[in-house]
Design a protein around this nucleic acid. Structure first.
Lengths: 225, 225
DNA sequence: TCAAAAGTGTTAGATTTACACCCATGA
DNA sequence: TCATGGGTGTAAATCTAACACTTTTGA
């Protein structure tokens, strides 16, 4: 009564994290040169193995924490990647997750210690195994998600200007939008609240800072971008 | 040079198939009572284990084939389900797939031999483990997909009436639509072609049969439903 | 002859898009 | 004083949604 499925084979299962950040008007992902064999030196996502006593979701959160020291981060599963030869060493099935973090929350020293870098999503180098595919799929999913859920705020500081928010949308969707039309749509979203604070770093005149009000969002049915 | 990841543990990986069919105006899934321990007798999806030498996608196709005898079926991955205790027997991570089949292509004898049944998506019984969750997620994904890709035809016979197509959309999305508006939208899609044939089974007057023209679709940028 | 499904257009309202100028400020 | 990004409204076009009657035919 202990071994139920013994005629079948077991495999390694790993998780890989596509960590998105937004900085200098660019959507970026965190990648590094692989520090172990097989594939040493190739650009790669940060990943880890799923332990015997943790859920796959937990393994992903743990892996993200190892790399960034951040917890309670917005993460969503991208899917399982399971070609037979995707890992040159052994059979490994990997489950990809994407995470959205505010670049400023990530200690740059920690980043350097792990040897990972923020790379523009549109300028990815050739990558280890199927990692590029993972990133592409994650990006598509994130693009779809941002249309129906207010996830942009995960990538921005708590206070942000409308121009920053617009640049984020443009970077995610890969196309520019009209400033006036964009702001009109934002005005209809009561959960994006104007504060009295002004940001002077982006312009001489200064721009009002806005914040995301989660409670207001939950009451507001009116979301679409 | 053979064991790279030996400090990590291996787990069983399975696939589970959410097989959608459309019949009598209803969207249905194929489920059966589980014939093995653990969970014997509980309603369950049809699944199988991923072999050491097959990709996860191939395992899903093979599993579908075992159950239905059908190949080259539209299948998409739903995602990985990886709670520690999702399987009462052993640690098993399962990767769910949904498939769209034309109910008429599935030999009813084969169905009975496997002890599976077509159950209305809106009237699911309590189910084994996380299978209900899998079905719900598959349905949501399919609903999203049908808006941007012409997958409805996978669920219909090659020739179908506009009323059938409309009922399918209604069943998938769970809400009725206006007949005239629906037909207007279909007229704009040049890849849905009217044939000269008439179906008399659905009404006394008879309705024109239509077919999906894949080539025309690929040229036609104009899709939205 | 009547019940049941097939087929067909118009209009009002809502949404989307295109578009250009003035403002405030620090350098 | 001027270069830079911040901020604002209107009108045309498109899309969406609501709505009702005639046709055909087998029972």
């Amino acid at each position: 009564m202990t071994i139920f499925y013994s005629e079948h084979s077991k495999v390694y299962v790993s998780v890989d994290c596509i960590i998105f950040g937004f900085d200098e008007g660019q959507l970026r992902v965190l990648i590094g040169k692989r520090q172990m064999d097989p594939g040493r030196g190739e650009w790669s996502l940060y990943g880890g193995f799923v332990g015997a006593h943790e859920s796959v979701d937990d393994a992903a959160s743990r892996t993200l924490f190892e790399l960034t020291g951040l917890r309670n981060i917005y993460m969503r599963q991208v899917g399982a990647f399971g070609s037979v030869d995707r890992d040159p060493g052994e059979r490994v099935i990997s489950i990809a997750y994407y995470a959205l973090i505010n670049v400023k929350d990530y200690d740059d020293r920690l980043r350097q210690e792990h040897g990972v870098e923020w790379v523009n999503i549109n300028a990815l180098p050739p990558m280890y195994s199927d990692h590029r595919e993972m990133i592409k799929k994650a990006r598509r999913m994130m693009q779809d998600k941002i249309k129906t859920e207010p996830i942009s705020f995960q990538l921005l500081p708590q206070l942000f200007t409308l121009t920053q928010l617009q640049r984020l949308y443009e970077a995610v969707n890969g196309e520019e939008v009209d400033k006036r039309n964009f702001r009109k749509r934002i005005k209809d979203m009561n959960f994006i609240e104007k504060t009295e604070q002004i940001d002077k770093t982006g312009s001489k005149r200064g721009a009002y800072l806005y914040c995301f009000n989660k409670n207001a969002f939950n009451e507001d049915t009116n979301f679409k971008l």
